[in-house]
């Protein structure tokens, strides 16, 4: 009998991907681990576990700064906008698939066209509109912009999905005498769940992480979103890196935890519009 050493398959891919894993995880590790050190220990050894654990930075950020307020604002805008997108988008998609007319065909093309144009180009006019509506400096200014921004992808993904639903399913409901809205609510929405999830994830990350529109629209502390608030805290804590890193960690953690729990759906959701469009 001949013995061969067990050969590890795919050595080169493992070396390359392993190296990239280090490149990705090193900054994240640095961020988390140093946020738990004493101010001066950060400078002595930035790479390894703290010699003395320090949770003070987190307590300070959570108790003595506007961080919780910013956090609530972001949660409010992100969740609120996504709920509205799902509601309006699924109703529109329902109509677009079933209504055979010139108007619906044009509307579809018009809505989908928005996938190709970054809304930032319209910033100058959006500022005027938000100002005229009296929404400047309030968190409310973000809702209409985000809902509009999310609509093209929502309509696209949802109507693709509705087209795949077999006719029989809604036919039965129609024979039972269910009206359109009842079919929408009790047949369509439950079936649409996976697609609604995709749309929600697609919008979750850009809304939560958006800097541009909050920076343009909002100046008042009480209305700032998390990421906009981070810019202020970053300046305020400039000399205390432990605190800065605590702020960065806290602002990244919610999305990161969600991502780690359902990375498949995230990857699918975030690349969905891009691949199919």
């Amino acid at each position: 009998m001949k013995f061969t050493a067990p050969r590890i398959k795919n050595i080169l891919p493992h070396i390359l991907l392993g190296f990239w894993t280090l490149v990705v995880l090193f900054p994240v590790w640095t961020m988390v681990i140093n946020s738990l050190k004493m101010k001066l220990d950060i400078y002595k050894n930035p790479f390894w576990l703290p010699p003395k654990w320090n949770f003070q930075s987190y307590l300070t950020v959570l108790r003595n700064s506007e961080f919780p307020l910013y956090f609530r604002n972001s949660l409010f805008v992100t969740v609120g906008s996504i709920v509205m997108i799902l509601f309006l988008g699924s109703m529109a998609a329902y109509a677009l698939v079933n209504w055979k007319s010139r108007i619906s065909r044009w509307s579809y093309a018009f809505l989908i066209a928005g996938m190709m144009f970054p809304i930032r180009i319209g910033s100058i006019n959006l500022l005027q509109i938000v100002n005229r509506l009296g929404l400047l400096n309030t968190i409310w200014s973000l809702f209409p912009v985000y809902i509009a921004m999310g609509m093209p992808i929502a309509v696209f993904v949802l109507s693709e999905f509705i087209r795949q639903i077999p006719e029989d399913l809604t036919e039965a409901a129609t024979i039972d005498g269910a009206g359109r809205f009842r079919i929408y609510r009790s047949v369509l929405v439950p079936l649409l769940r996976p697609a609604l999830g995709t749309v929600a994830i697609f919008n979750l990350v850009p809304f939560w992480n958006d800097l541009w529109f909050p920076l343009l629209f909002i100046n008042r502390e009480e209305h700032k979103t998390l990421i906009l608030g981070v810019t202020r805290l970053f300046g305020q804590y400039q000399t205390d890196w432990s605190r800065i890193l605590a702020v960065l960690t806290l602002s990244a953690v919610p999305v990161m935890v969600l991502y780690l729990m359902m990375s498949k759906q995230f990857i699918e959701g975030l690349t969905a519009g891009a691949v199919k469009g």
């Binding site: 529109a92 319209g122 609509m151």
Partner: peptide
């Protein structure tokens, strides 16, 4: 034509806060 009521809300928000600002800019 009843379908228009399903379509309109999405269309209105999208038009006023995306399409129009883009072109108007």
């Amino acid at each position: 034509w009843n379908w228009i009521f399903y379509l309109l809300p999405a269309l209105v928000v999208y038009t006023f806060f995306m399409a129009y600002p883009l072109l108007n800019s």
